[in-house]
């Protein structure tokens, strides 16, 4: 464990909690893409199946349960509890165009052709594009609530910190996982446009609105 991975995990946890609290406190999931949240629940489910097969540490196991629990709680709140506030008309990204090719890619490019490893690879590839429905929705509505931008900021920051974690681990441990690194770079690049808007607008107290 190193400082980049720890702050990365905490940033990821912060993002998940911010979103959960935003929906719970405001009793509304306006502006939130349910499709992205379903993809994140799928990412955690396919990645953390090793909860059943291997124990790494209490930290690792507990964080996995927290991530999975929060992800499904968020999906439940969007599609069941606060369904009336779900903005389905703007959440129209065709996720099947993501899931199917990524499923195929996971079969072709992986470290080991075993079920758990292919599911892990699928989850890594899927996570890199899982935010696209959310970013697409914001581009369609032309704006985002400030609390939602904070959610996206911490979510984007976590994988950027993981990139530094992988540099650290390569230098000090000789560890590197090309699949995770390439997907992590793609994932972080997808946030760059948002990061620019977040720094130039939200941090200056303005609302995040895109030129319609």
């Amino acid at each position: 464990m190193n400082i980049f991975r720890l702050t990365g995990d905490l940033s990821h946890l912060a993002a998940i909690i911010i979103l959960l609290l935003k929906i719970w406190k405001t009793r509304s999931c306006a502006g939130i893409s349910g499709k992205s949240q379903i993809l994140f629940a799928l990412v955690f489910t396919t990645r953390y199946l090793d909860l059943l097969t291997s124990f790494i540490s209490l930290y690792n196991t507990s964080m996995k349960f927290i991530y999975i629990g929060c992800a499904y709680a968020t999906v439940y709140m969007i599609y069941a509890k606060f369904k009336a506030t779900y903005d389905g008309n703007h959440d129209t990204f065709r996720v099947e165009f993501l899931v199917v090719p990524i499923g195929g890619l996971a079969f072709l490019v992986n470290h080991d052709f075993s079920p758990l490893e292919i599911l892990w690879t699928f989850s890594i590839y899927l996570e890199s594009v899982a935010i696209l429905p959310q970013l697409f929705m914001i581009s369609k509505t032309g704006e985002a609530e400030t609390i939602t931008t904070h959610y996206l900021f911490f979510l984007g920051l976590y994988r950027a910190l993981y990139l530094m974690n992988w540099i650290w681990r390569f230098y000090f441990e000789g560890f590197f996982d090309m699949i995770a690194i390439v997907a992590g770079v793609v994932q972080t690049i997808l946030y760059c446009d948002f990061f620019y808007l977040y720094v130039t607008k939200v941090l200056k107290g303005k609302k995040l609105s895109l030129p319609a």
Partner: peptide, 10 residues
């Protein structure tokens, strides 16, 4: 090269 344990990251 993959790290010591299969996937020790979240």
């Amino acid at each position: 090269m993959i790290g010591r344990t299969k996937h020790d990251e979240l």
